[in-house]
Amino acid sequence: MAFLEVKNIGYSYSKGTPFEIVALHDCSFSVEKGEYVGVIGHTGSGKSTLMQMLNALVKPDSGTVMLDGKDINADKETARDTRFRVGLCFQYPEYQLFEETVRKDIAYGPTNMKLSAEEIEQRVQESAQIVGLPPELLDKSPFDLSGGEKRRAAIAGVMAMKPEVLILDEPAAGLDPIGRKVIMDMIEKYRLATGATVLLVSHSMETVAAVADRILVLNKGGIAMDGTVDEVFSRSDELIAMGLDVPAVTRIAVRLKEKGLPVDPCVYSVPQAVSMLLKLIGKKEGTA
């Protein structure tokens, strides 16, 4: 039995009204402990809904979610307990800050867990350190921070619960490349420190390919692909057909293949592209 197991999940919004939308249908997958999984999909592919099911915020209409062999929707207690074990960081989490000080805001989760004051303080320090918030910022109002600092404080608020599974929905949305790198480094730091399982939701393949071991591709409310980064990228043409934002080098490789050149379209980073092109030129020179 896998650590986190999703079986035949289905869900629709606004049931019984003219606005009924099927968000997910018959989704199954499992995640092992310590895995780093990228979840990608187009806007409206159901990825956000699926993530909210993993910590029992949304109850599936059909199917089950098992964490560590237990149904997370079994009863209210289990559902609430699951929220501390599976930390979910929403998109634009900085819009959910509310406390007077950054310290109190980060402490909100651990306080709800009813931990001791010392334990809470220690967790606040630890997570602030992981996200790179200097201690002098902890006593400021979260509304006085810069945009990037707010985002980091909000993510620290989820990390402070020390979840065994950390889910982040577009944690780098709206940030510049440096900001994105900082966020990715934070996640890596948390992963190394706790050995947690991480699910990273993004519509950018580039971000996901750089960090994840495995990729889940969602399309139209179903799981379209589930495999290692290489496996998923070997079907690059399908990813493009789904309207996903694949890296520019992948696009080049797919185009070259379409032109009839012997190219492996499984290319997603610049060094890979360089070796692919060198191989291509080398072969041509050899035959000429």
Binding site: Q52, N55, L57, R80, R83, F84, G87, L88, C89, F90, P93, Y95, Q96, Y108, G109, N112, M113, G157, V158, M161
Partner: peptide
């Protein structure tokens, strides 16, 4: 809806 979900995800009761 989103804020409620986000705070519930941090254990709001």
């Amino acid at each position: 809806d989103i804020i409620m979900s986000a705070q519930k995800a941090r254990g709001a009761d």
